[in-house]
Design a protein around this nucleic acid. Structure first.
Lengths: 405, 405
DNA sequence: TATAGTTTATAAAAATATAAATAAAGTACA
DNA sequence: TGTACTTTATTTATATTTTTATAAACTATA
């Protein structure tokens, strides 16, 4: 009936090629042929069409590997754009990227309280719309919106059961009110995705990414893909029973990692210590609010404050014990320390390694590399952009407005 | 050059269909078309060829779902056979199955010590060859040999680094000396595979299978597939740090699950208890050997012996604590208690559930079903057969001798 | 510096798979 | 009981994809 449905299969191959060229810098027809298990003529045809449509450009010749040099192709950076959104409990960040993950507009940061805030969704929608308008980029050229946020999320339905109640699917709501296909996922999952696609764990297939925030999150890459478990709760590292006699956790149990080693708990310990007269540069920080103290504490530790380092080392050892358990079960190739706390990761490394030596079978810990994120605080935004392109080959919808020369 | 290479793609589709019909009892052309994303004519052609070749037979009409009833097809049971081998430290089992997993020859059981036994591989090879000969089945009709065994195994290379040194690839050796393509895998992994394909966890995608043997093994099904981790050590549940002050484990650490709750440890505790004069029916069992005591203990518990039940309950509670950790990290849909100890699983269930209540976040344990294996001791053999058919679509080799009417 | 061997690219012919049309066999409901 | 709607199966014409052959560009080696 509809003529635009013709050749859906062919256009799917083209979408797969765009997606691949987004993740890899450049590829040859031969490489794509191997990857997709399609003949070289088929790939060449699709690539040529994509060039004419303005999505792909030639990228020069790669060095020979013993024969004729392959002509490389890469995606045209400004053929499409991706809107990335990163939310935490209090703050929202919005950033527009091109297809080479370069920012094409200044990042927008604004306060957005998620908990018990019925206005939050409306504010977010307006901010997204006005941000795109200000950027001067046509909506038709935005491939999608990716959103990372805390809470328990049903990815396929696009529902966050904890925050931003949209009376149904949050992504459906945003897709309708922005005119751009929207995807959401858990913040820790997106950080993991970013680290595996563009970060320190690039191309690794078994990666555990620790999101050191106010809580302790875990994003799991299993078999090269995000793993969420049967009901979406996988990676609840923060509430495994670590010790019998630990302090009481908000979840009602004792000895949880989060109740012993999260940045929030460390900050509270700092406040307590100061009240009891501990000598520390944090003393001058009269602020009694845990989260502000947390930020101050991280900086103090990096500046050599002994009390701050002591508190972090204690937390690190406990994190290490949890990682030992994780290594035994998952045998990951890589563990990445990421998130807000990544900036003190170097201080955490020593006690973590110490705990791994004590609690890990050597042949197991030997197979796992412990690394610190280089993306840092940007990881969640990058992950949100990745989320959009991860879904790009599944989009059956009409392709983004023709790219033009 | 070689004409038999022609149509490899088409024959691969046919192998995929045979594999699918091995796992599902019967399927229609429409169903296969959906599954493989191929057109119905393509599937119909392949199915008809397979019928003429004697691999597939009609299986009657399925009930209508609102339209014309689909004609179902199933694999011809005696078109091919599978040789399954299950090894533990001391005993070997060999069994020949048809494509409907029915035994077509009596099971062969014989002593085979794996540790420090240079003759083991030769004996096993001879036993396999003579078993097939005795069965009267032509070697050309055996699709493959699947072997499950303890030890650290490199599946792709077919090497067991712990036992049965073949001076290289064990599977290559056996393939050469039997003339039948051979595959090996870890015993716990194969038990998991069996439970997911033909056991209590059929068609589940996130399954953790506990192999309650002399040690405590874990086979992991993630995303519907066996998961082995980055270097093949995933699922080392038995050596995670459970408590700070537990007894010393063979691995050199303290508080490991295996040192607290394995059947071997429970048996040792029983021997000790008897020496200290505990009242128990096991008293009459003068045997001081842990493994024999273990078997006696399982039976005594099932017969209501209070001392045996007490020991097992204690072990069960510790296993439950470990499962709580596993649930937090993996969020599996199903946990199956399988292996040698499965016959006392009902006794273990109560203390395990008790531990889960104590150590698990409710919304997590609510998503996981705890089940007892129905395959029992046969699981490893079934898993070994499954292993062969799992690889059936990857076989590029000349197909098994024509099935004939 | 030839020569043989690789790898990549392109154009034609050949093989293959799919969509569309049609038929067959059933359900659901007025 | 008949009509409309589904689902499955088969045939044919069409479209697509892959071989195959050929050429081009480069490496390695005698």
């Amino acid at each position: 009936m509809e003529p635009e449905n013709k050749g859906v299969k062919g256009s799917q191959l083209k979408n797969m090629i765009i997606k691949r060229l987004y993740f890899n810098k450049a590829m040859s027809c031969a490489g794509l042929s191997d990857l997709f298990d399609k003949s070289i003529p088929s790939i060449a045809k699709a690539v040529n069409e994509l060039m004419h449509e303005g999505f792909v450009v030639e990228h020069g010749y790669a060095p020979s590997s013993g024969g004729r040099r392959p002509l490389m192709y890469s995606v045209k950076a400004n053929a499409m754009y991706i809107l990335a959104v990163a939310l935490d409990q209090l703050t929202a960040r919005i950033q527009l990227f091109d297809l080479q993950n370069s920012a094409v507009a200044d990042m927008l940061t604004f306060e957005l309280k998620l908990l018990n805030n019925p206005d939050a969704l409306g504010i977010l929608t307006n901010q997204i719309n006005s941000y795109i308008k200000t950027s001067g980029i046509a909506k038709g050229k935005v491939a999608g919106i990716g959103i990372g946020m805390p809470g328990f999320i049903n990815v396929t339905e696009g529902i966050n059961y904890t925050y931003l109640d949209a009376n149904g699917s949050l992504t459906a709501y945003l897709t309708e009110h922005t005119g751009i296909t929207t995807y959401i996922d858990n913040d820790s999952s997106l950080i993991a995705l970013a680290e595996q696609k563009f970060g320190i764990a690039k191309a690794q297939t078994e990666v555990m990414v620790i999101n050191l925030g106010w809580g302790i999150g875990l994003g799991m890459i299993v078999n090269g893909k995000l793993f969420r478990g049967h009901t979406g709760f996988a990676g609840e590292l923060s509430h495994i029973p670590l010790s019998e006699d630990g302090s009481l956790c908000e979840c009602g149990k004792r000895g949880c990692l989060e109740a012993e080693a999260s940045m929030l708990v460390v900050a509270r310990k700092a406040i307590e210590g100061i009240k009891q007269g501990r000598i520390t540069s944090l003393k001058h920080n009269t602020n009694d609010h845990s989260k502000l103290m947390g930020d101050a504490l991280l900086d103090a530790a990096n500046n050599g404050d002994q009390f701050a380092i002591e508190l972090l080392s204690d937390a690190g050892y406990k994190i290490g014990k949890a990682l030992a358990i994780l290594i035994h079960i998952m045998n990951p190739g890589t563990i990445v320390l990421s998130g807000r706390g990544a900036k003190v990761a170097k201080i955490l490394m020593a006690p973590i390694q110490q705990a791994l030596h004590k609690y890990c079978i050597p042949r197991l810990s030997a197979g796992t590399e412990l690394l610190v994120s280089e993306l840092g605080f940007d990881a969640e935004l990058v992950g949100a952009a990745v989320l959009v392109m991860e879904n790009f080959d599944k989009t059956v919808k009409a392709k983004v407005a023709k790219a033009g020369a």
